[in-house]
Write a protein that binds this DNA or RNA. Structure first.
Ligand SMILES: [Zn+2]
Ligand SMILES: [Zn+2]
Ligand SMILES: [Zn+2]
Ligand SMILES: [Zn+2]
Lengths: 130, 130
DNA sequence: CGCCTTGTTGATAATGATTGTCAATCCGGT
DNA sequence: ACCGGATTGACAATCATTATCAACAAGGCG
């Protein structure tokens, strides 16, 4: 049976405050700074569950797992600023079809895919130029 | 100045023997089994360099870095069996353009992308069914 | 060929993220 | 309020990767 705890809700809320992907460590640190007594292991566990539920998105970077609150129930991808982490959810209609097709062409079944676009956001590009 | 060592060549060769992505740990273990006295740190260092050179491809999975020999000088992506690791290099022409476009639409510059397709290869699918 | 400079190696320690442990705690149905 | 089991959290344990640093060896030179 699944229970409702203030910890789960606290993680959900803290995650929602960030536009960018964050690590479990970073999220835990931020929550602590804001006075929450939540434990590190709980943050790890909760984020993993949220990702399973589809409530959060997971991104692997440099062997680190980064999470982000995402609009549930929708399949989408991300455009991420590699400098500041600013992230935008994007549709990838042409890619969905392409992925299915290329898998089928090679006799692969149950296809899934990982698609992320990185770049410099307008603000970071301006700052780098200035 | 860059020197030629038997270690570098040994890693290149061992990497080429595998159709699938392998971890530094796994590659080192395999090399040792085959009698090579190469050190673990060297395998890590060499794989990282090969990836920089574009001689090897890098894939992040479960917070693990996996490497694979790749045809140098070509931009391509991978279709990977999530059961046995069998990997096929694939072209993604439509995706290249799409990625550039979606980045531009949101004011992002210097776009790059991560695109991988996973699935069950024919052999693994058959084995799962039988 | 032998010497020297310096990039490279490898055993080991150190780091850092993540997971396991397990008793104490808390949720929620009765 | 009571009970059973899910959840928590401090801490230890694990796992991949990186840093150290003394010993080694590649290759240019005389
Ligand atoms: Zn930015
Ligand atoms: Zn998609
Ligand atoms: Zn397979
Ligand atoms: Zn591409």
């Amino acid at each position: 049976m699944k229970r409702n705890t203030w910890q789960r809700e606290a993680v959900r809320e803290a995650l929602g405050e960030s536009e960018a992907f964050v690590s479990a460590q970073a999220l835990h640190a931020r929550m602590r700074e804001e006075g929450s007594p939540i434990g590190l292991a709980t943050v790890y566990r909760t984020l993993a569950k949220l990702a399973e539920d589809g409530t959060a998105d997971l991104l692997q970077q440099d062997g680190e797992q980064l999470y982000r609150a995402c609009t549930p129930g929708t399949h989408h991808h991300h455009l991420i600023c590699r400098r500041c982490g600013l992230t935008v959810e994007i549709e990838a209609k042409p890619v969905e079809a392409w992925a299915r097709q290329v898998a089928a062409e090679h006799g692969f079944t149950e296809p899934s895919h990982v698609v992320d676009v990185f770049g410099l956001c307008a603000e970071c590009a301006a700052r780098a130029a200035g």
